[in-house]
């Protein structure tokens, strides 16, 4: 397997990834292998490792540094003994999401899905869920630019039926 070859050599191998807009990123092999998509690219094709450029079609170069940073830190968290304190992981995750717009978050979810990394996808979808919880219908629609396709009659009827279920929402 690819991972065993890296441990036998003293120098860390690098893999070149190509973002959707054509920009190249040189990445240490273990970090690149965090992405199932990259890993499966090399399955049965180990000889090609040296000069192969892996195209990542759904990942814009804007998000690549942050995503690679996530992989580096989280794989380090996993390997460390004893495991890092929860606050350290939480602090990293919060810093990761800070200043990320909703649009950027959505793009990264698409990227994480394409890269087939369960850990990153779980983390990002959880973050998206946190942004829409306890919000009013109007807030959620405006926040994510969703068009209301209910007719006024439909909406009024559903609201009348479950009006009391709307208690306890956050202020918009």
């Amino acid at each position: 397997m690819a991972s065993s070859s890296s441990s036998s050599s003293t120098q860390v191998k690098k893999i070149t990834l190509k973002a959707a807009d054509g920009k190249h990123f040189e990445v240490e092999e273990p970090v690149a292998m965090e992405m199932e998509t990259v890993k499966s690219f090399f399955v049965g094709n180990e000889d090609a490792m040296k000069d192969m450029v892996v195209p990542l079609l759904n990942v814009s170069s804007e998000h690549m540094p942050a995503i690679l940073d996530f992989y580096r830190n989280h794989s380090e968290f996993r390997k460390r003994t004893p495991p890092p304190p929860a606050e350290e992981v939480k602090a990293f995750n919060e810093a990761f999401l800070e200043n990320k717009s909703d649009e950027q978050l959505m793009e990264m979810i698409m990227a994480a899905n394409f890269l087939n990394t369960k850990e990153l996808l779980n983390f990002l979808t959880e973050a998206a869920a946190n942004r829409i919880k306890n919000k009013s219908v109007e807030y959620v629609r405006a926040f994510f630019g969703i068009e209301n396709d209910f007719t006024p009659e439909e909406e009024a009827r559903i609201r009348a039926e479950n009006e009391w279920a709307f208690d306890g929402l956050d202020e918009d």
């Binding site: 979810i109 698409m110 899905n113 996808l121 979808t125 959880e126 998206a128 869920a129 829409i132 919880k133 306890n134 919000k135 009013s136 219908v137 959620v140 629609r141 969703i146 068009e147 209301n148 396709d149 209910f150 909406e155 559903i158 609201r159 479950n162 279920a165 709307f166 306890g168 929402l169």
Partner: peptide, 22 residues
């Protein structure tokens, strides 16, 4: 992917989310 996001929302938020769109 939308389901992955929505499935993580606490149940108390579900009544309003069902009204966002069809």
């Amino acid at each position: 992917l939308l389901l992955e996001c929505l499935s993580r929302v606490p149940s108390s938020s579900l009544p309003s989310l069902s009204l966002v769109s069809h």
